[in-house]
C-alpha cells in the first residue's frame, strides 16, 4: 500500500530527536524513548492522512497518538511527561509553515500569506488540542479513581 520511502521521514524524525535531546541536556536511555516518540507521532500522521483526508485532522490524530505514547512512557519510566512531549513534538511543529508564511510575506503574495498563516496556526492549534485532550482525559480519570476508591489512591 505504501512504498517504504514514505516512512523514511520517521527515521529522520528519530535521528533528529537524538540531536535535540543533546540540546535539551537529556541523558541516558530516555534519549531513545523520547526520539521514538517523535517517530511514532509522524507515523501516526502518515497513517491518518489517507483516512481523515485533511492535514489539520491528521495533525490532531498524530498529536493524540504521541501524547498517549508520552503519557504511557512517563508512567512506565517514572519521568515527567514534558520530557517526552518536548522532544516528540518536533516533527509536528510547523517550522515549514512559519518559513513559507514568511516567504509569501516578503514576496508580497498577500492572499497566499494569509492562507499559509491560517494553515500554520490551525496546525499548531490541532497539535495543542490533541495533546491537551489526552492529558485532560488522564487527569479526569485520576480524579475519578481517587473519588471512587479514596483509600487506594497514589
Amino acid at each position: 500500500m505504501f512504498p517504504a520511502s514514505e516512512f523514511l521521514p520517521c527515521l529522520y524524525a528519530f535521528v533528529g530527536g537524538i540531536g535535540f535531546c543533546v540540546l535539551f541536556h537529556l541523558r541516558g536511555k530516555e534519549i531513545i524513548f523520547t526520539s521514538l516518540g517523535g517517530a511514532a507521532g509522524w507515523l501516526a500522521y502518515l497513517l491518518a492522512l489517507p483516512v481523515v483526508g485533511s492535514e489539520v485532522m491528521a495533525y490532531f490524530v498524530a498529536a493524540v497518538a504521541l501524547s498517549v505514547y508520552s503519557e504511557i512512557m512517563a508512567r512506565v519510566r517514572k519521568c515527567p511527561v514534558t520530557v517526552y512531549l518536548l522532544i516528540a513534538i518536533f516533527p509536528l511543529v510547523p517550522g515549514a509553515g512559519i518559513y513559507f508564511t514568511m516567504q509569501h510575506a516578503i514576496r508580497g503574495e498577500n492572499t497566499l500569506f494569509l492562507t499559509q498563516m491560517m494553515h500554520t496556526l490551525s496546525l499548531s492549534g490541532a497539535l495543542a488540542l490533541g495533546i491537551l485532550l489526552v492529558s485532560s482525559a488522564i487527569r479526569m480519570w485520576q480524579v475519578f479513581r481517587r473519588r471512587t476508591h479514596s483509600n487506594s489512591g497514589r
Binding site: L8, P9, Y12, A13, V15, G16, I18, G19, F20, C21, V22, L23, H25, F90, P91, G95, A96
Partner: peptide, 24 residues
C-alpha cells in the same frame, strides 16, 4: 553536570538540523 560539552552540543545541532532537512 551542566549539559553536554560544547563540541557535543554543536554535533547535536548539526544532527538535528541535518535530519530535519531530510525530513522536509
Amino acid at each position: 553536570p551542566k549539559g553536554y560539552p560544547v563540541p557535543v552540543q554543536l554535533l547535536g545541532s548539526a544532527v538535528g538540523a541535518g535530519a530535519y532537512a531530510l525530513f522536509f
